[in-house]
Design a protein around this nucleic acid. Structure first.
Length: 677
RNA sequence: GCUCUUGUAGCUCAGGGGUAGAGCACUUCCUUGGUAAGGAAGAGGUCACGGGUUCAAAUCCCGUCAAGAGCUCCA
């Protein structure tokens, strides 16, 4: 058996994890801008990732009593789980077993390694406990009695043991002096627990063990690693089944799976982790989206620019990205001459490494963001107040060294392309510019049928002094953001303390069709970079003034956005976004010529069309086209060739009757042009 | 990064100390058909990579790489 006692040191003040991942499924990715300047002694990824609320407040007994019925049920089921595990493996040492968003877990340290093969046995044992319909009995005890029970190994156990219940002893110490201590008993299983619980184990009828993973005790990597058994529970079988079906649905929609099936993108070991290869079909989707967004950018008076993927290190020293956040960037590219010079000076590998880390080297950096390049474009001209706002947009590709454990699919990658733009404006223009950004978001999400999104307005914490810039400007910018959010006509929340230190921001969180939330882009007001780069424009008073910058990437990155869209549509993109919009299905090879004519007519009209020239029967061709999620199938046989018509089948609506070739062409072209859903 | 799990054909997966398996996809042939799978044959794999144990390794052990899940919504 593993001896965790030696490694286990009690921690009086648990160190909160810098980055907590609350969402189930896919983690958020609001790491869009980072025009920071303060030398926080933290890795860059900390700033790219959502900030955790500081140390979670311990729940009071009152708060716990307010646990919802479902949470109560799940927490009780966690005790049933622990009872079963304690029966099967009496040496089990339990830590915490709370209800969580989609169920519950219980952390356990155990000589035996639990695998999915063990689930049936555990569930059988749990069913027995449920069937016995044991009463959950609350017993109030004194601190010393609790300690005594724990020393006897009696807590989270079915009887006395030779080894103390060591995690429970530790947890006891976290309980404030003035708080009542209670244990809950069901049958012979006693556990330190504040409750509340359902009355009897018989209430925990509908449950399922979902998975087992590892977790650090109290989330601290210096603590022992425990096995975390996840389960879920519902009041009845039907609700449980519905939940499991939804999970299955989510699994089917997983963009990694759909992306492979539909041949949209590929990640290759030989290229590198977190680096997306957009295959032809995925590239079409992305290109359509970019064209769509560009069209609206032009309408809104943006100027599109192109900038390189690298820049001199000095640029990023000025912006503040380097060297403080070097850990989250690809290492610098050192110039050949500089390297040679270092070698001539006798600089060894160790010293080189140190100099790289400290930033005392010359070279280039793969850009971690686009703002410095755009700033340099702005600075390449003198600007009058009459020029403002200057709006520079770019589908700008950036590189970040995410920890390998954070990577996943298209939603968490090391190279991504932002729908980025930087607006240089006067303070008076900030409000209107923010409204413009939100307008674009509204149009794009509306066109895609993603009506279910919310907006978070991140304001500064009035009690903190970590923010840069003049408080009066902050007030103005915050008011502008608040006002703009209100005009959006959608729900928004204001979250004090969630602002970046350089300015307030708006985040967009979209909900997909099965209710999962995804953080996409942000709009951020920035007073910091204009200062660092000494930006200026000449005002009506003939004096130099400092412009304000707005960073905005409303859809975050093309990678993540397309990943979200794949799941949102379950791969069934609207016609305008579909990589293949129409497939012609000749009944037999006799009609290949006519099929070719139909193909030519459609292609000429700009429709993405192919002909299935295989010798499959039409049923098989339809099946394949359905699996490829192609919006329109045109069945062509003798009748159609005779009348110059096509028999139209839609992937969702089925057989739609026949239509003259040109009429179909006009209809599908109109559908594509209008970008209808 | 850390822990666990996984890595076998383009895809989905079975197998497992002694000729490498299936279905789908692919190629060829037969079939020329009417709204979700017509038939036959064939081709395709250093079993992720590198070491080790063994007469013998895809299989067992160690390491590397990669993928997936998890990493306090606290007794």
């Amino acid at each position: 058996m593993r001896d965790t006692t030696a490694a286990f040191k009690l921690q009086k003040t648990p160190v909160p994890r810098a980055v907590r991942r609350k969402e189930v499924g896919f983690p958020p990715l609001p790491r869009i801008f980072c025009p920071f300047s303060l030398p926080f002694p933290r890795p860059l990824s900390f700033l790219f990732a959502p900030m955790a609320d500081d140390a979670k407040q311990r729940k009071t007994l009152d708060e716990r009593a307010q646990m919802s019925d479902l949470e109560r049920l799940r927490h009780s089921t966690a005790h049933v789980l622990a009872t079963a595990i304690a029966k099967l493996w009496p040496d089990a040492q339990f830590a915490a077993g709370p209800p969580v968003e989609n169920g519950f877990y219980y952390d356990v340290d155990l000589g035996h390694r639990i695998t999915p093969d063990d689930f049936p046995a555990i569930e059988e044992e749990m069913k027995r406990v449920v069937k016995e319909n044991q009463v959950f009995e609350r017993v109030t005890i004194s601190r010393s009695e609790a300690l005594d029970l724990a020393q006897r190994g009696r807590l989270a156990a079915l009887g006395d043991r030779e080894v103390p219940s060591r995690f429970k002893i530790d947890l006891l110490q976290d309980i404030p002096e003035d708080e009542e201590i209670s244990i809950f008993r069901n049958g012979d299983f006693w556990d330190l627990c504040a409750g509340p619980h359902v009355p009897r184990t018989g209430n925990c009828k509908a449950f399922k063990i979902m998975s087992v993973a590892s977790a650090f005790y109290k989330g601290d990597a210096s603590n022992p690693q425990l096995q975390r058994v996840y389960g879920t529970a519902f009041p009845n079988r039907a609700d449980l089944d519905a939940h499991l079906e939804q999970l299955e649905e989510a699994r089917k929609r997983d963009h990694r799976r759909v992306g492979r099936e539909m041949d949209l993108f590929h990640i290759d070991e030989a290229v590198g982790q977190g680096l997306i290869l957009w295959k032809p079909k995925g590239a079409l989707v992305r290109q359509e989206l970019q064209d769509f967004i560009s069209e609206h950018l032009r309408r809104q008076g943006y100027s599109q620019v192109f900038t390189p993927h690298i820049g001199k290190l000095d640029l990023y020293r000025t912006s503040g990205h380097f060297p403080y956040y070097a850990d989250s960037q690809y290492p610098p590219i050192v110039e050949r001459e500089h390297l040679k010079k270092l070698a001539d000076e006798g600089c060894g590998c160790g010293e080189l490494s140190n100099r790289l880390a400290s930033g005392e080297i010359d070279g280039f950096l793969l850009k971690p963001m686009n703002c410095p390049h755009h700033i340099k474009i702005f600075q390449s001209n003198h600007h009058s107040y009459r020029d403002l706002p200057v709006r520079l947009a770019e589908f700008g590709t950036v590189y970040r060294w995410e920890q390998s454990g954070e990577l996943g699919g298209m939603t968490r990658v090391r190279c991504f392309t932002q729908d980025d733009a930087h607006l240089f404006c006067t303070e008076d223009q900030v409000a209107a510019e923010i409204r413009g950004c939100l307008e674009l978001v509204k149009i794009v999400l509306g066109t895609l049928g993603m009506q279910d999104y919310r907006v978070r307005v991140g304001l500064r914490d009035p009690d903190s002094s970590k923010y840069v810039g003049d408080p009066a400007k902050w007030d103005k910018a915050e008011a502008a953001l608040r006002e703009a959010a209100a005009t959006l006509g959608t729900a928004f929340t204001e979250e004090p303390g969630e602002a970046a230190f350089y300015g307030p921001k708006i985040d967009f969180v979209v909900k997909d069709v099965i209710g999962r939330e995804w953080q996409l882009g942000t709009v951020q007001v920035d007073y910091n970079l204009p200062e660092r780069f000494q930006l200026s424009y000449i005002g009506a008073d003939n004096q130099a003034h400092r412009p304000v910058m707005i960073h905005r990437a409303p859809f975050g990155s093309m990678e993540r956005f397309v990943g979200v869209l794949i799941e949102h549509f379950a791969g069934k993109f609207p016609t305008w976004l579909s990589p293949e919009q129409v497939r012609v299905l000749p009944i037999s090879e006799k009609f290949l010529d006519f099929a070719g004519e139909v193909e030519a007519v459609l292609r000429e009209a700009g429709v993405r069309v192919t002909v299935d020239r295989s010798d499959d029967k039409v049923g098989a061709k339809i099946r394949l086209a359905q699996l490829d999620k192609i919006p329109y199938m045109l069945v062509i046989g003798a009748r159609e060739a005779e009348s110059q018509e096509v028999s139209v089948r839609h992937r969702d609506r089925g057989d739609a009757g026949s239509s003259p070739v040109l009429a179909f062409r006009d209809q599908v072209v109109a559908e594509i042009r209008s970008r209808s859903l």
